[in-house]
Every structure is written in C-alpha cells, then in structure tokens.
C-alpha cells in the first residue's frame, strides 16, 4: 500500500513537471498532507479546468503551521486538522469561505457538519476527511472482551498491549472512559484521567506510535490503540478477519481535516474550483477508496468500490480534538509527562 502510494507520488511529480510546461497560465498552490490525495485525481482536475496544481506536502500540523507562520506564503489551500483550523482562524491566517460558491457543498453529511466546534457554520473551512484512532484486537489470541476502553484493564493481557505515544489520544481515551470530553479543561477531571492511565500502564508493554502495527501484525502485540490505516497496511491481507478493529463505546478522540484558503491567496477562484471539484461525489469516492476510510460525502459513499476499514456511523461515538489553549495544554503536558516518566 505504502509502496503503491510512493510510486503514485513519484509518477505524479513527473506528471506535474510535465504539465507545468504546458501553455495554461492559471495556477493553484496546494499545501497538503503527504499521501492524502491520489495524484491522478489532481491530474484529472488540471485536465478538466486547465488549472495547474503545484503540490507541496507536510507530515504534521505543526510542520505546516510553522512554515505558514514563518512566511512560507504563496500557497492558496492548506488542509489543517480541526484544532489547527481554530488556531489559524484566531491568528488571522485564513480567508473566509463563501460556501454558496461551492455547488457541491451540500454533499457533505449534515450530521458531520453539525458536530464541528472548531469552525461552526464552516465560515473558514470545508471538511475533507474525518477519522479516529481505535483499538485493534487479535481475535485469535484474545476473547471475552467488550468494545470498551476497559480492555486495557485486562492484566492477563499484560505485556501484549500498547497504546499510542500520543498525549491527546491516550488522555482522550481516559477522559472518554470517565465520561468526560476529550477537550476537558478541568484539572480535577484531568487528574482522574491520569490515574486511569496509570492503572492501565502496568498492563501495557509500551506507549508506541512508531512500530506497534508491525508488532501487532507479527503476533507480538494482541491489543493496540492506533489508526486503522496503519494496522491494515501491515496486516497480511488474507488474514484481515483476525483483526477486530473497533471504537470503544465510551467514545474516542477524533479529527477532521478541512480545506482552508489562506489569507491573501492569489488564486482564490482556482481554489474554489478545486475545493468544489474535491466535493464532487465521484472524486470524493476515489479519495476515500484510496485511503480506505469512510467518506463524509454522502453521495460518494454509494460510489465507493473499496470497503472502508470502518463505517461512517462508527464515528458517532467520536469527539473532535480541539485546540486546548496554552493554559490547558500545559496541564495536559504535565499530566502526560508524569505518566511517561513514572512517579
């Protein structure tokens, strides 16, 4: 899968270079997550509209944000996660978006739009994909568990379970298991959540965001918290039914990545055309197939040819991770540091 993406990325780079030599003058500068939109989708856009798309990619919100703040302007579209959408709105880095100019905006699931807290009413952002980390269980090794965070209380699985090395995901899981919000600013609730993680910790081999999927695929770990796409890329295709991927019933921290137009974008018209193109059901379906994720684009779901790793309804239990603000972030950092270092 990864290899396929790399080949595709390489082919597209060549394609872009080739198309850059064409005659059209209209351009669009897209700053996007790496391996997020298949390159043929972008090539087809250029073919349809004559607009050349120059793509630059990033691997984390921080990387994207630092580059924009450091003056890496010239981009028209960025694709931040929700917490960074609100940060960038507050910092005045985004141009308001007139959704009435997007004919396909109505394709987006109203239920998903209603849950957006980082930009209510989508004044600055147009949703692209949403997803969440869940729990993967190796069915051949583990039985008698619930679809709940309490699986990490199973001391008989000690040494066979991992959680992500990610503050928001682990504390978010603990907060959800207590019935609190994943963005809860209350220090008392956070302390309770920390104690929950401390209770889970003796049963965990490690906090791992790097190689857990490999070790899960090899049978080394039996219960792992992580993103479905990571796990399924590593797991042998013919034995996928051994994996029970689920979102715990108490809820999960979730993210949504959205298209945003940068303040002062020179090619705003081209940006509108591109976002509208991405919202077209056939295009959205191609992207969702490629990522094996459920689409927030309602008519696209019927057009998908790949069965996604989970259904859109499964995300009902999710809650968007939002920007915590400096003060609360410090509380989270302190709690996480105590967990990681041990007391």
């Amino acid at each position: 899968m990864k290899k396929r993406m790399m080949i595709a990325a390489f082919a597209a780079t060549i394609g872009l270079v080739a198309s850059a030599c064409g005659g059209s003058s209209e351009k669009l500068y897209l700053f996007n997550w790496i391996y997020y939109i298949p390159d043929d989708v972008i090539e087809d856009f250029t073919e349809e509209t004559g607009i050349k798309v120059i793509v630059d990619s990033y691997a984390s919100n921080e990387e994207m944000y630092n580059k924009i703040v450091a003056g890496g302007s010239g981009y028209d579209i960025v694709v931040p996660s929700g917490d960074y959408v609100s940060i960038m709105i507050a910092e005045g880095l985004l141009e308001p978006i007139d959704t009435s100019r997007l004919a396909n905006f109505g394709n987006l699931d109203p239920a998903a739009l209603a849950r957006i807290g980082f930009d209510p009413g989508n004044r600055y952002s147009v949703p692209f994909m949403m997803a969440a980390a869940g729990v993967s269980v190796n069915r051949t090794k583990v039985s008698g568990y619930e679809h709940s965070w309490n699986v990490f209380d199973r001391s008989d699985l000690g040494g066979r379970m991992t959680m992500l090395d990610d503050m928001r995901e682990v504390l978010g899981a603990a907060l959800k298991s207590l019935g609190y919000s994943v963005n809860d600013p209350d220090p008392a609730h956070l302390e309770e959540a920390r104690l929950v993680v401390e209770r889970w910790k003796p049963n965990l081999v490690k906090f791992d965001a790097e190689s857990f999927a490999k070790s899960f695929a090899s049978g080394e770990f039996w219960v792992v918290q992580g993103y479905a796409e990571n796990v399924f890329i590593e797991y042998p295709e013919d034995r996928r039914d051994e994996v029970d991927f689920f979102f715990p019933k108490e809820g999960v921290p979730m993210y949504m990545d959205s298209f945003c137009v940068l303040e002062g974008a020179k090619n705003a018209d081209a940006a509108y055309r591109f976002v509208d193109y991405m919202l077209r059901p056939d295009v959205a379906a191609r992207v969702a197939d490629y990522l094996m994720l459920p689409s927030p684009n309602v008519p696209a779901r019927a057009l998908m040819t790949v069965t996604p790793n989970y259904g859109f309804d499964d995300l009902a239990a999710g809650e968007f991770k939002e920007d915590l603000g400096q003060e609360t972030l410090k509380l989270y950092n302190d709690a996480w540091r105590r967990i990681r270092v041990g007391n």
Partner: peptide
C-alpha cells in the same frame, strides 16, 4: 529506548524530543 524500551525506559533523549515536538516547549 524508543524502540526496545518499555513504559519505564524513558531517557533524557526522549524527554528532549517530546518537549520539542509534542509539548512544544
């Protein structure tokens, strides 16, 4: 320590990396 360490194998190198990239301090 990141790859073969467990929950208790945190070292100064990991702490620095986490403060830089995760806590952003």
């Amino acid at each position: 320590p990141l790859l073969v360490g467990g929950t208790e194998s945190y070292m100064l190198g990991n702490l620095i990396a986490d403060e830089l990239t995760k806590s952003r301090d």
